[in-house]
Amino acid sequence: MTEQFSTPAAASRELIAFRIGEQEFCVDIMAVREIRGWTPATPLPRSPGFMKGVINLRGAVLPIIDLGVRFGLTTSEPTARHVIMVAHIGGRLVGLLVDAVSDIIQLRDEEVQPTPDVASDHVKAFVKGIFALDGRMISLIELDRILPETEAEAA
């Protein structure tokens, strides 16, 4: 894999790409602990719309965030084909509901472009930058802003 880059020492990292609707996003692979199929979640009362509820992950209570709703995109009901990425965010384990995991990619930091101004403020809150790969546009997600209370802090 290093043959792609002349200088392997350059800051390159592995990312995991996933789809929500027609759009592609990615997060640092080191943050993702496992990927599992969708199982119905127990809804939490008085919770924001993107909070799907909680599921049992081998005895741990795992909150599930619907990333599509979180980003203000689609609102389709999850099916067995949907995927939960279990991610470490700020010392917590959180399940991220996405449509599908599409790829594992290598990326150097300099390839990332700043988020263009056309994106809404809402999306910009979570997107660290964008980059092109094989003609696709992929948005790099800042996981730390996914949880509701960290969003409040950032605001």
Partner: peptide
């Protein structure tokens, strides 16, 4: 099981 471990108080 605590909800606060991975989420927050509800």
């Amino acid at each position: 099981k605590s909800l606060e471990t991975n989420y927050q108080q509800v």
